[in-house]
Amino acid sequence: MLQTAFNGLVTGIIVTLPALAVTLLFGVLKFPNFAVGSMMTLAAYLVFALNVQLGWPLVISTAVVAVAFGGLLIAIDYVTFKPLRERGSITLMVASLGLGFVLENIARLAYGNTARSFAIELARPFRFLDIRMNREQMITIVVSTLAMLAMYFLLTRMPIGRAMRAVADNPALALVRGIESPRIIRWTWFIAGMLLAVGGVLIGMDRALEPPMGSSYLVAVFAAAILGGLGSPLGAFIGALVIGIVSELATLVIPPNYRIGIPLCVIALILIFRPQGLFGQPYIRK
């Protein structure tokens, strides 16, 4: 029971970074990006290329890819989403669906369907309060927490973060106040790219690298973001933890192969009873 709860915590932590990326992107760009799963996959394979094929240490590979991936997403946005910006959220969603297929299959084209792993030594677990924990889980928890703190600092203390929140709240007003939204959008993609790259590496460490690794998390990631209220970073963090723990604990009573049903039920319940999510503001229609 305690062990399962801890496992759930780890699952939840893994979901936090992509959920944060989704919620940031949604806040600024106003559409749910279905390509986030595949973006994580591609980033993880890029790290794999540096880490395994070139033999760089995992930390350095991740850092390099995170920055590069941020840049890559800005470029992708320029050719994919920017021309569609004014066409409404459905068009953008469909484009993100197409983009997701493209990115996942670029990874497949390069590395095939075989399962792979990063070049890290696997370690046996240690015990704490009779709960088994292992090194990768510790790394996951530490990295995600640091990333969360950095995000919090960025969004509340730094001008660019405050500008992002302003654009998320009200783009028109932000523009009136002299906040350039193209610049903010570029920053948002860059930060989301970094979060997704790190998230992809954490997933790759947790399981094996294979092309569907990222998209298999899609429902859980969106459930976390919706639970927290799309657009709310703190909400995404808490939403992810709740989704992770609830899904793992649920396996004690339901067959584990229906775990994906839990995030789905959470989405349905939230949409029926509290559409704005736990931490979101009620959406006011124009």
């Binding site: 749910p32 409404g88 959220s89 969603m93 429902v219 919706i226 949409l271």
Partner: peptide, 25 residues
């Protein structure tokens, strides 16, 4: 019907995605 309170396309899209996954499972 489930999405009765949110006619926002974004939420609706995510619900359909999730239901589709569930049906396949």
């Amino acid at each position: 019907l489930v999405t009765l309170r949110v006619t926002e396309e974004d939420y609706f899209a995510i619900v359909t995605l999730g239901v589709g996954e569930m049906l396949r499972l």
